[in-house]
Every structure is written in C-alpha cells, then in structure tokens.
Simulated assay, not measured.
Amino acid sequence: MSDDDPTAAPAGVPAELGATYRPAERYGFLQASSARLRYACWNVPGTASGKVKGTVVLLGGRAEFIEKYATEVVGELLGRGYCVYALDWRGQGLSDRLLADRGKGHIDNFSTYMADLQLFLDKVVAPTAPRPILALCHSMGAHIMMRVLAENGPGPISAGVLCSPMTALKREAMLRSVLMLMPELPAIDERYLFGTGPFVVFAREFGSNIVTHDERRYRFTDKWFAADPRLALGGPTLGWGRQAARSMTAAVAPGYLERIELPLVLISAGEDALIDSHSHSAVVARLKHGDHVTVAGAKHEVMMETDALRGLFWEAFDRLAKGVLGQ
C-alpha cells in the first residue's frame, strides 16, 4: 500500500531555514481512496537502537504541511531520541488536492481524513516505527486523531499530546448559521468560505496575525511556499466548513470521548482566536486518562510560538513522555 518515492521530497529548501531544517530519511506516497497521501519518516541520527526512545507521529492542522514542522520541531524530537513519522492530509502539502483549483482547502467528509489516518497508521507506522509510539497533533490533526482513537481504538499509539485541538470554533455559531442557509451542492460547497480566499503572501501582515507572537516562525510558511509552490494552499471551502461543523458535533456525542482508552494531554493556547479553548476542559473531563495544560499568552500555534511559550509546551510533552512512557 505504501511506496517510497524521492519525488515526495520538497523541490527546494529556503536557504535561511537550512540550519534547523531536517530532511527526512524516507519520503513516500501512500495510495488511499481516490488520493495519494504523502508521508515522511526520520530516524534518530547516528544511533544503534539503544538511543531510540520511541516514535512520534506528527500531524499538522488545516493548511499545514510536513516541512513547516521539519524546520524545527522534528529536529527537537530527534534530539530527544524519537523517530518521527509525519503525514500531509489529503488536499494539502504534497498529497493530492481534491479540486482543480489547488488553492482551495476542501474535503468531502471528515471520515475521509479519518480513513486516511488509519491507513497511514496501519501501513506505514505500525510495521516499522520503534515503540512506544506517541501522537503529537495540532488543531485539525488533533481533532482527527481524537476521533480515530474513539472509533477505532488506540492501535499502535501509546499516548498523545493534542495542541489546540479543534473541538469548537470561536465563531462557530456564525458558521453554522450561514451553513444552514446554503444549499449543499458542489457549486456552493466548492466556493471559498466567506472571509477567505487564495494564498497571497502580501496579505500576510504579521501584526494582524492570530496564530503566533513569533514573526520568524510565522514566516516559515511563506518561505516554504516560495521554495516549493506546490505546497501553497489558501483558505478552506464552504464544504470544508460544513464538514468540520458536522465532525465537531460527532466528536462530542454522548459516550463518544469516553471510548478513548489511552492517556492524552490537551494543550490549550491562552490567546487562541480560532479555537474556543474553553471547550477543552469539558473534553478532558470526559476522557478516561486526560490532562489539561493551558499555555497562557500563546496564540493558536503553540509549537510555532516564542521560545518562552514553546518551552512550556515542551515541558508538557516531556512530562507525558516521562510519566506515561517511563522515559
């Protein structure tokens, strides 16, 4: 089902990011239903197996891509002794896009994302990843992982850290009101969601951004899109918004979260303007083995924040690794 393929590597690397960027040892495509999914795998450098503590499955959020995390986060995980396995969601990164307009972030149903993740875990991660395996997921990726754990069980995953998980949106009531008025037709659902559009680098003013206080890390996206334009992605479609709303409803259905057996740490961003982080405490309360950490002062992308705020994230990650995995 998986096929290693060097063409899944990025076409170029921004020179100014080269010092911390870690290219993967293995890139490949995984054939899923109606789409090829791109993945990357890193081994702990210069090791015999004795230095390997385990593996981290790294999953980004909507519009993100493997290289954004390979710029710093992957190196920090490798330095801690973890192999890393990462996936581009269908419709973004170098995975197949769903619409002729590559700039539109679209999905037919979040169950498709869930099936893609399960396939990745079954066919790429489980056969080769050193144990134990820890999930590290952001935003939409955290939401999808949580749903897969609830519906399919833990599989090869031993524990997880979910950063800014998409459990509720700040402007969700407005989104749902608009969706109720819009007929569910391809011609409608394939339009950009109101207030969004194609990626325009000149429109990305740091001062008005809502994801990080750190301008250098904010520019990771711009620099990678310039180095390999195939990575570029604009806003979500109305159909993506419709399916996201339905998936968030499904994720909080009675008895749903209670199915998750493994330990999870939910990390909330104290200044999140995208996700309603007030919903996280209720989610954690329903988990059998849940912990809740709030990084006060952080915007949505905690792993792309300032050094001080990222330090609080890494403390939470290291605490889970030590406490749950015995390391």
Results as ranks from 00 to 15, higher is better:
residue 185 L to A: 12
residue 73 V to M: 04
residue 86 A to K: 06
residue 185 L to S: 13
residue 150 A to E: 01
residue 161 V to E: 00
residue 67 E to Y: 01
residue 156 P to I: 12
residue 167 T to M: 02
residue 139 S to I: 02
residue 136 L to N: 14
residue 126 A to E: 11
residue 184 E to L: 08
residue 140 M to P: 11
residue 162 L to I: 01
residue 185 L to V: 07
residue 161 V to M: 05
residue 125 V to C: 08
residue 176 R to E: 03
residue 68 K to F: 14
residue 131 R to D: 09
residue 155 G to E: 05
residue 148 V to E: 01
residue 146 M to S: 03
residue 185 L to M: 11
residue 148 V to L: 04
residue 96 D to G: 12
residue 173 A to D: 13
residue 64 E to L: 00
residue 154 P to L: 05
residue 81 G to A: 15
residue 181 L to D: 07
residue 53 K to L: 11
residue 152 N to R: 11
residue 153 G to N: 06
residue 60 G to I: 05
residue 116 D to K: 05
residue 186 P to I: 11
residue 159 A to I: 10
residue 120 F to M: 05
residue 57 V to T: 12
residue 135 A to T: 05
residue 172 E to P: 04
residue 146 M to K: 06
residue 174 M to A: 14
residue 88 D to N: 06
residue 85 Y to L: 09
residue 52 V to I: 11
residue 89 W to D: 01
residue 80 R to S: 07
residue 119 L to F: 11
residue 178 V to R: 10
residue 130 P to V: 14
residue 83 C to D: 14
residue 171 R to T: 13
residue 89 W to K: 01
residue 162 L to A: 07
residue 176 R to V: 13
residue 172 E to F: 03
residue 186 P to N: 13
residue 130 P to M: 09
residue 69 Y to M: 04
residue 108 D to A: 06
residue 76 E to N: 02
residue 180 M to N: 15
residue 172 E to K: 09
residue 124 V to F: 07
residue 170 K to P: 07
residue 71 T to I: 09
residue 177 S to N: 02
residue 109 N to K: 10
residue 135 A to H: 04
residue 180 M to A: 15
residue 104 K to H: 06
residue 77 L to V: 00
residue 51 K to D: 13
residue 88 D to K: 07
residue 74 V to W: 04
residue 65 F to V: 03
residue 76 E to K: 00
residue 80 R to L: 09
residue 172 E to N: 02
residue 59 L to A: 13
residue 144 I to E: 11
residue 179 L to E: 03
residue 134 L to A: 11
residue 115 A to F: 05
residue 166 M to Y: 10
residue 128 T to H: 14
residue 159 A to F: 04
residue 173 A to S: 07
residue 124 V to E: 04
residue 52 V to H: 11
residue 46 G to L: 10
residue 144 I to S: 06
residue 133 I to Q: 05
residue 174 M to C: 12
residue 120 F to E: 03
residue 158 S to N: 08
residue 179 L to Y: 05
residue 85 Y to F: 12
residue 145 M to W: 04
residue 94 L to Y: 03
residue 76 E to V: 11
residue 102 R to A: 12
residue 128 T to E: 07
residue 49 S to I: 06
residue 183 P to V: 10
residue 126 A to H: 15
residue 175 L to H: 10
residue 103 G to T: 08
residue 58 L to N: 14
residue 101 D to V: 15
residue 148 V to A: 14
residue 78 L to F: 07
residue 169 L to C: 08
residue 127 P to V: 14
residue 50 G to I: 08
residue 79 G to P: 13
residue 147 R to F: 00
residue 50 G to F: 08
residue 167 T to Q: 11
residue 74 V to C: 05
residue 91 G to F: 07
residue 47 T to G: 06
residue 119 L to V: 12
residue 140 M to H: 01
residue 131 R to E: 12
residue 180 M to D: 15
residue 136 L to R: 01
residue 47 T to P: 04
residue 121 L to I: 07
residue 102 R to T: 10
residue 127 P to W: 09
residue 75 G to E: 10
residue 50 G to Y: 02
residue 157 I to Q: 00
residue 46 G to M: 14
residue 121 L to F: 03
residue 155 G to L: 14
residue 62 R to L: 04
residue 87 L to E: 02
residue 46 G to C: 12
residue 48 A to R: 06
residue 128 T to G: 10
residue 175 L to G: 08
residue 95 S to Q: 10
residue 98 L to R: 09
residue 127 P to N: 10
residue 72 E to D: 13
residue 48 A to C: 09
residue 129 A to L: 05
residue 156 P to V: 13
residue 114 M to K: 12
residue 134 L to M: 15
residue 46 G to H: 08
